[in-house]
Design a protein around this nucleic acid. Structure first.
Lengths: 197, 197, 197, 197
DNA sequence: TATGAATGAGTGTTCATTCAT
DNA sequence: GATGAATGAACACTCATTCAT
């Protein structure tokens, strides 16, 4: 982070960049459109980021730390016995994923072009891996208490994670609360809870 | 009598286009690169498609019919009692989605930029709706036999569909067979079957 | 002239070419548009003319012979004493020039870009020179009869010729008969006749 | 504070554009050739003009105001009695038209393709109309003094104007002074003066 | 520091021309 | 002989990046 002048400006650029890149993709988005949205001149962008690629990478990677902290935070904010905690986490996760549509679209855009954005994809995978670690712990704990059973906890966690991405991709606009509830049920089922048989 | 425009060439262009567009996105992909991959001159592309936009739309929409026919076909190819059939369908679906990574990435790319590709997105939604119709029927039949229970069958089907897209997005390369199996288990769970409690 | 197959087709092409070239200029006009107007395929044009340049040159030069024969014919078709004949000629000339707007526009187009179409321009000048020869003879004859006086007969003829081109250029659509009459008066005045003092 | 867009550069582009367009026509002329002649990069042209069409229109229309001011100025610069003034005006006009060959060729090029450049043609007609207004006044004044007679003053003025364009079109290079003098005589005759019978 | 002017590299698209049938 | 498919050359226009102020 060059931190040349105003960190506020830097943030404005990054926010504008996330919006533009997620709506139009990398190549279609112009530096000018980002600058305009950030309320500055296009040339100023280059004072804060060395190139369009640099800005893109920072816009995608930058929020990752916060993003996964947030997810972990959701887990830690739960209360009750561990089964109840897991269920609460699922609810919070689904809500969170549907609310972060903009940024998630950007991440999904990058994931859809793995060869093109190899280096960024790898960085995100590494963040995700850490998060899956945390998730795995939680699920394992519930399992040890005998309340659910999953042969392959880690792989189950990846399924869960994929599901969250899948719903965010398919429904990033106009989701009903009924639909949201169903997503939560489905997510719980993936983790082995919530079956009402 | 002059030479005749070859349907084979048209197909080569479409195949090349799907590959390129899914790897690089719309704007980054050049007509030249598509032409090169199809083994023709870039100008020839314009003999078959009126513009880059036209080619893109046809590359995305074209396979939809086949794609959903295929999915419906998978359902019909199953045997046994209806629960077994549903389970078989899930297995075939997961396999199919992981194999169609290239094309699915393209569809997901379009979905990630709904404002930009509004018209295409709407067309795909309409295909998907039809497919969900079929899926709903199947699930309802199993349910009527009392073997599973889902309050919201249609919404459950959308969850199932989102999950398939989610795994295809997150893992479009190097998936282990263990992982594949877990995906199948998770998919079954979303539909309310496969819980081993 | 290759005279490959049908002279009728060749003529259709030339007629279409004159129309297109005079309306849109050389570069803007496409071989396809000419072919379409001539009711044939664009490739067929190349059976009759070796290149676009070739077709253009033939379309411009081709009618020159007929055009100046026609003008000379107008002179010879007059009757009465030589002053009356000159006046009749002027009337016929003005009518003729306003009627040949399409082709004249093409010639004027070429004249407006003398460097670009040097060779064609020179050929037209040589035709025009011959015509001015004829015109000069006529005017000189009237002058010898003492009915008009012009110091510089040849230069006066060029003025007359320039005037005809000038009105055709400025008014190639919607000319009133009043205007036509005034043109005739003006043309006569250039030649030294028609002054009503 | 950044550099400022220079009006000098804009003028250079316009001058280069007039030269190129008048020599090669609209389509044949490339933005690069204009830029080269103006001593700048082709991309810079688009900083000053939004498109090739825009540049063309401005190059054609731009000088119209100056052009007709100039013509009117010529009239006002004359001295002596009104007949002498008219004669002087004609001399100045002929000189002026032969000197403005470059720009006039461009105007004539546009006039030769009225359908293609309809909007520009209409704008020029409106300028010309104003100029003819002025000319008409002058001629009428001379006429009122009983020194010449023209039935249709306005139409005569259009003839005069057409003649000026005609000579400029036919002789935009290498005109002898003898020829120039004859042009002046012819122009005077159109207006009803200068007959030496 | 911040900006707008300037530009070179790049791309979609057109079109004259060639070629196979 | 006639045609439509195929193509390479060319061009308008865009945009990331640099530079002068």
């Amino acid at each position: 982070m060059p931190r040349v002048k105003s960190p506020e400006t830097e943030n404005n650029i990054l926010k504008a960049a996330i919006e533009c890149f997620s709506q139009e993709g990398f190549t279609k988005t112009t530096i000018s459109s980002i600058a305009k949205k950030a309320g500055i001149s296009h040339a100023t962008v280059f004072l804060y980021f060395s190139s369009k690629e640099d800005l893109f990478e920072k816009a995608v990677i930058g929020p990752q730390h916060w993003f996964y902290e947030k997810q972990v935070g959701l887990i830690q904010s739960t209360t009750g016995n561990s089964l109840e905690q897991l269920s609460q986490m699922v609810h919070l996760h689904v809500d969170f994923y549907m609310k972060q549509a903009d940024y998630l679209r950007l991440v999904q855009y990058v994931f859809g072009q793995k060869e093109r954005f190899r280096s960024i994809v790898n960085q995100i995978y590494s963040y995700t891996d850490q998060y899956i670690d945390v998730l795995e712990e939680v699920v394992k704990k519930v399992q040890e208490e005998g309340m659910i059973h999953n042969d392959q906890v880690r792989l189950t966690c990846w399924s869960y994670f994929s599901f969250l991405n899948g719903i965010s991709l398919t429904f990033n606009e106009n989701v009903s609360s009924e639909q949201m509830n169903q997503f939560k049920v489905s997510a719980e089922r993936i983790l082995g809870i919530g079956m009402r048989t």
